[in-house]
Simulated assay, not measured.
Amino acid sequence: MDNAARLLAQAMGPLLGQPMVIENRSGAGGAVGIDSVAKSSPDGLTLALGSTGAVAVNASLIPNLAYDPRRDLLPIGLVTGVPSLLVLRPGLALDSLAVLLDQARRKPGGLTFGSTGPGGTPHLAAELMKLRAGIDMVHVAYRGAAPAITALLANEVDCAFLDLGVLLPYVREGRLRPLGLTAAERSPALPAVPTMAEAGLPGVEVENWYALIGPAGIPPDRVARLAGAMQGAMAQPETARRYTDQGMRIIASGPEPAASFIRAEMEKWAEVVKRADIRPD
Rank of each mutant, 00 (worst) to 15 (best):
A4N: 12
R6K: 14
Q10D: 14
L15R: 15
L16C: 07
L16Y: 06
M20S: 00
V21I: 15
N24W: 10
G27Y: 00
G27V: 01
G29C: 03
G30C: 02
V32K: 04
S36H: 12
V37Y: 10
A38F: 08
K39D: 00
P42C: 09
L45Q: 15
L45C: 09
L47P: 04
G50N: 03
G53S: 05
V55W: 08
V55N: 07
V57H: 05
N58P: 03
N58A: 11
A59F: 05
A59L: 04
N64Y: 10
N64V: 02
D68V: 07
P69W: 09
R70P: 00
R71A: 12
L73F: 04
I76N: 08
I76M: 14
L78K: 14
V82C: 12
V82S: 14
P83E: 07
P83A: 06
P90T: 13
G91A: 15
G91N: 15
A93H: 12
A93Y: 01
D95E: 09
D95T: 08
L101E: 03
D102T: 12
D102A: 15
Q103A: 14
P108A: 08
F113I: 01
S115F: 01
T116K: 06
G117W: 08
G117F: 08
G117Q: 07
T121F: 10
E127N: 12
A133G: 04
M137S: 03
V138A: 07
A141M: 05
Y142C: 02
R143C: 00
A145Q: 11
V157S: 03
A160F: 01
A160G: 03
A160E: 10
F161W: 08
F161C: 06
D163R: 06
L164K: 00
L167W: 03
V171Q: 06
E173A: 14
R175I: 00
L176A: 10
P178Y: 13
L179Y: 07
L179H: 09
L181H: 03
T182Y: 08
E185D: 11
T195C: 09
T195H: 05
A197Y: 00
E198N: 05
A199I: 09
G200M: 05
L201E: 04
P202R: 06
V204S: 03
Y210L: 14
L212S: 02
I218Y: 06
P219S: 06
P220G: 01
D221M: 11
R225E: 11
Q231V: 05
A233I: 11
Q236P: 02
P237Y: 09
T239V: 15
A240H: 03
R249A: 12
R249H: 09
I250V: 10
I251M: 13
S260K: 14
I262F: 03
I262D: 09
I262Y: 02
R263W: 07
A264I: 04
W269F: 13
A270W: 07
I278F: 07
I278T: 04
D281A: 11
